[in-house]
């Protein structure tokens, strides 16, 4: 827990140190391209929650100034073993949505840091299996043992995201976001999922989540001051 907090603060500090820097390319106003991200918390997850393994990648691009279309995909495995239960699950998930940059950079402003509010639709598909269960009884010879075979489950949810992405090196970003998720619909089983991939604890119909991600933006086109000036009416320059 303590190590996790330190890791979190370190990432936060890196973000804060870089939030107001600007890339020394005065002529470039902003770069259009696809930003590919990888959620670092998913790799750290195994260290702090050994019963979970996950990875997540994200893709986003600015389709209009300050508006981003974004997609996230990932997979997750979980297991739970104690004296009453031996359980495992695995599955994948995807989210699509839009982010709105609340820093509201105008067409002439430089810098590509983003503080965003976003909305997502998410879907997970998973299988879960209870290899063994034990139900102890008051009577010593009355203990029940059994297992449940593999079942396929899925669910749909919506989420609100709030976070930031800061350019720490050219085209390289670090970002953090907090997510609030609400389950819309899920296929039920006798036991709810231990962890629903991408959604979080299967026992809850609402979940909070946190991401710390690293991103690389593949620059596809650069918008320079000259190009902006051409597009804007003369009186606004």
């Amino acid at each position: 827990m303590f190590t996790r907090k330190i890791a979190g603060f370190t990432l936060t500090a890196i973000l804060l140190l870089n939030i107001n820097h600007s890339i020394a390319q005065d002529s470039i106003q902003w770069v259009r391209g696809v930003r590919i991200g990888c959620d670092l918390t998913r790799f750290a997850l195994y260290e702090f929650q050994p019963d979970r393994k996950a990875m997540e990648f994200s893709f986003d691009t600015e389709f209009k100034r300050n508006k981003f279309v974004t997609a996230e995909i990932g997979m997750e495995q979980s297991k739970n073993e104690n004296n009453r239960l031996s359980y495992k699950s695995s599955g994948f998930y995807g989210r699509v949505g839009v982010d709105f940059n609340i820093l509201k950079k105008d067409k002439l402003e430089k810098g590509r840091d983003v503080v965003f509010v976003g909305f997502r639709y998410g879907y997970y598909n998973m299988t879960q299996q209870t290899d063994a269960y034990v139900i102890p009884s008051y009577y010593s010879t009355d203990t029940l043992r059994g297992s449940y075979s593999s079942k396929n489950l899925y669910g749909h949810w919506v989420e609100v995201a709030f976070g930031l992405k800061v350019e720490v090196l050219q085209n390289l970003f670090l970002g953090a976001s907090m997510r609030g998720r609400v389950l819309l619909f899920s296929k039920k089983d006798l036991n709810y999922p231990y962890y629903a991939p991408g959604f979080g604890k299967g026992a809850n119909s609402t979940n909070f989540g946190v991401n710390y991600s690293i991103y690389y933006q593949i620059p596809l086109s650069k918008v320079t001051a000259k190009k902006v000036a051409k597009r804007l009416p003369p009186q606004t320059i």
Partner: peptide
């Protein structure tokens, strides 16, 4: 002001991430 706001939000992120409630268990009896 923006920095302070982002810093506060980051701390909230951490507390949300670290906060887990243990399950309670009753005997079958």
């Amino acid at each position: 002001m923006r920095i302070i706001l982002i810093y506060c939000i980051s701390i909230v992120f951490l507390f949300v991430a670290c906060n887990t409630i243990p399950d309670t268990c009753k005997e079958q009896s």
